[in-house]
Design a protein around this nucleic acid. Structure first.
Lengths: 179, 179
DNA sequence: GTCTATAATTTGATAGAC
DNA sequence: GTCTATCAAATTATAGAC
């Protein structure tokens, strides 16, 4: 991936996470990275292409930050703690929603290929969590637990953001310690 | 509220819930209710005005559908069951996200008065749930539990919508029965 | 209250020079 | 790869007739 491509994707990530897929234009992106909008179109022909690239970039970044669940378990670490921390970091460092949480909430209005890529974020996260819960012994409900954890944290980010109180995230996430 | 105003608000509600605040235009609304866009501006001078009205309308509709929590408790009903059911109804009947879940995820990109009205939805829902959890005896954690329940259900709607599987909602909401 | 007309700006996108 | 120039369509919004 060229340097400019990554710059564009990062600018777009920030803008989607601030106000959603329809909240920014190619000109906004161009200004942010110091080129003209036609140059952005050179790298990403359509807005949907850019949307797909951003969702894919974010998904890979997020999942690789988690590490391999099997490895974490072998190392005696608590993968759920790490998972919760990853969401909180997104909220703390970037002071923003989860990219795929926003895209997910808007999914019925997205171009189909952006919607498809958004779905992949959810599927890969559920896979990751399912492996963890399987290792904890809940054979039958591992996938349900995975979906609960993901949903709770997406919701926690929204509520925390709406109430502009970072402590809300911790209070909500604490449910995972008592379930 | 005039009849046309309500028609406009309902059309806008549907469109926001499909793709967010920036996914529709005054012309879209006008076409949907059979008038010209200038007529929509007559009722709601700016888009932010319409956004506020929609968020307020949705909040009142949702909370009055729940009923009074004290009354429900007195009647020996389970308010949490009713609360979960209200979210599921929104998903089932309208086949759409929670309006304020979408607006909440986009909140940093919304006009400030729309953001403020969105915040009110969250606050009023937390108040409602806090009354319920206080009655169940958890004095210290009632508000935290309220925020957990609201967040879980908002997340459940997103995940269920993204995976286009209504059963996901039930599986996620089931966490409330084991916490 | 709704219409026609229109303004001013923004949008996603393309053609072609350098 | 980036630029200038440009396009057609869409956007929010207003003025004024009916």
């Amino acid at each position: 991936m060229g340097n400019k491509e990554e710059e564009i994707i990062k600018a777009a990530e920030s803008m989607v996470r601030e106000g959603g897929y329809n909240s920014f234009s190619f000109r906004d992106i161009a200004t942010a990275v110091g080129v003209k909008s036609s140059s952005v179109h050179y790298h990403f022909p359509t807005k949907a292409d850019l949307g797909v690239a951003v969702a894919e970039y974010y998904t890979n970044k997020f999942l690789s930050s988690l590490g391999d669940p099997g490895q974490l378990i072998n190392d005696g670490k608590d993968p759920i703690k790490i998972y919760v921390r990853a969401f909180k970091d997104a909220l703390l460092n970037d002071k923003r929603m989860c990219l795929c949480g926003i895209l997910g909430s808007e999914i019925d209005g997205l171009p189909s290929k952006v919607a498809a890529q958004t779905r992949i974020f959810f599927e890969r996260n559920i896979e990751w969590l399912t492996i963890v819960y399987l290792s904890k012994g809940s054979k039958k409900y591992a996938k349900s637990k995975a979906m609960q954890t993901l949903s709770l944290l997406e919701g926690a980010m929204i509520t925390s953001n709406v109430l502009t109180d970072i402590n809300v995230f911790d209070k909500v996430a604490d449910l995972l310690n008592h379930a």
